[in-house]
Design a binder for these strands. Sequence first.
DNA 1: TCGTTTTTGTGGAGCGCTCCAAATCACATC
DNA 2: GATGTGATTTGGAGCGCTCCACAAAAACGA
Lengths: 339, 339
Amino acid sequence: MGNNGWMTQEAGRRPNIYDVATAAGVSKSLVSLVLRGAPGVSPARRAAVEEAIERLNYRPSRAAATLAGNTSRTIGVVLDDYRNLWFVGLLAGLHEQLAPLGFRVAVADPSFNAHLDRTPVDGLISLRVDGIVIATEPTEDMFPGLDVPTVVAGNRDLAVPGADVVANDDVLGGRLAVEHLAGLGHRAIGHITGGGGAARLRAQGYEAEMRGRGLRTLMAGGHGQTTESDGYQAALHLLDENPTLTAIFAANDTMALGAAGAARDRGRRIPEDLSLIGYDNSPLASANLLRLTTIDGKNGEVGAGAAKALLDRMKDPAADVRTELVTPELVVRASTAPA
Amino acid sequence: MGNNGWMTQEAGRRPNIYDVATAAGVSKSLVSLVLRGAPGVSPARRAAVEEAIERLNYRPSRAAATLAGNTSRTIGVVLDDYRNLWFVGLLAGLHEQLAPLGFRVAVADPSFNAHLDRTPVDGLISLRVDGIVIATEPTEDMFPGLDVPTVVAGNRDLAVPGADVVANDDVLGGRLAVEHLAGLGHRAIGHITGGGGAARLRAQGYEAEMRGRGLRTLMAGGHGQTTESDGYQAALHLLDENPTLTAIFAANDTMALGAAGAARDRGRRIPEDLSLIGYDNSPLASANLLRLTTIDGKNGEVGAGAAKALLDRMKDPAADVRTELVTPELVVRASTAPA
DNA sequence: TCGTTTTTGTGGAGCGCTCCAAATCACATC
DNA sequence: GATGTGATTTGGAGCGCTCCACAAAAACGA
């Protein structure tokens, strides 16, 4: 066993698996087994290894593990806007399913890694992630070049070839919003549309339900708009063009906040003079200032579903592409009232 | 799909640097040079390598690069609450400085990786990050076991040994808030305190400035409180206990939002009956519904400063620990008015 | 007692890169 | 041509793990 010199830990060098093995009086392979929590290691040896790890302050190198094992046990998530908080539930749902199986979650931001990687997906592939969740409107240059299991979270304008889709039923959500408002006696109901595929479906739900009730659709806003200020502008437009409007359905909570600002600026009280409903059930919606009625898109469930879809596809890469829809739910708070 | 056209590459295997080298008719070392954008590669060879990379759809393995190069060219950030949006500017500032130098940013979440890594910092060390930014209240088990350059972003209750600190001057920010309010003629000014070291300093600034002006301090809220609902409760308390109160300074924008809700529920209009000022200049503050006057803590500058501190420490690990304070700035919007 | 399983533990061969010293090339100069 | 010089290019030796086939030890059965 007169090994080449890595037996004794030199000063300044980070301890590696051999240092731990030597310190614990076992082989490096046994240390590896302990690290991965493998069964079939005797309690005595396991304890010895753990003690050595502690004593040497050893931290395994994920780079080496990834390289040798040919898997990073990491799921990559492509996210593009930290301000729109819907992703928080998504990440939590993903994490909840994945962590017990030893998978980590890594977030890639298209705007951030623009210079370093050609696309966020390329960056994740360089990380050798075991799966990818796309939580933005995908672009074609995002399509995985090689077959990494991929799922698109949320309804999107562009279908990613080979990717499963997990989303909430945005069309149903749109109907739910109108149903609630109409049920309260509102007839002049405006809709603030947002950017992207999900918002388009919400608008479809709105239109379908309005028409089904013989009501005239009133829409403002449009492609690419999602911010509070977009919501403010669109609501101003809606309110000024339609003096008889008594209710507004905004495509997301952030725009609903903007709409609330517009209502205030036009002297319309919520909910007395104007009912307002959002979408997402973000932390914003529960704020005391608004107590916003909203549609809960169940992002946690979407995240959990995405995790399961990824796991299934790892098992069977050839399975048919699936679309899973989570049922959204109306959350009534204080921003809506009878007409 | 089919074959990319290169004969030596076996089906199913991901191409590696040797495949690219063979395809381009050069050595693997030359490919490595091109990958890292090294100078001194002839244009012809560089083009040949790039063409081969494109043709083979090659994506370098970051695990291998990290392992071989003994550096990940990644900076880790420890974050704990995605809801409190102050971190957005921090990340942007960090990124802006680091990306041109080829560093990436990886976010570690204490609540997420609880089971996989002992602490978020351990997880980052396993990643072999070249530096760590702590953007939460640190805990002792977060102290880096080995000397990875570390900087604490924001003022914190606990000092991390060996770590530089970059933060905005929270005490000055607190004074600025009071100065603005007092300048408008307010005398009964309440403060909603928040959790953590930064909030404590903001409160100190508030107290010092109030006392300096011979005004009585009125505080509510307390340790660990940062949410909208905490702000709502504290504001209710303040308002009910002090009927003459004409202004409130909240330790962050989120709590200010809560305070606005409380004011509404107590029939106090903002800014006519009650002036309100927040802290952070988050996206929330610019919302049309609030148009919140706030203190801008310059998180982008804090992030840029943290990046520079990290870079300096990489150059000279033995340099003295520094604290850098960024000067905060009052942003006047519509939530404050003369008493 | 001695096989025969079953459970544990081991060394060797990579994984795909970077780094380094040394080899080769291109071209100017003598 | 021979030689020198700097600009390019190259092979070899790891980096720290995992995986695998096999060895050793322990447990069991006859």
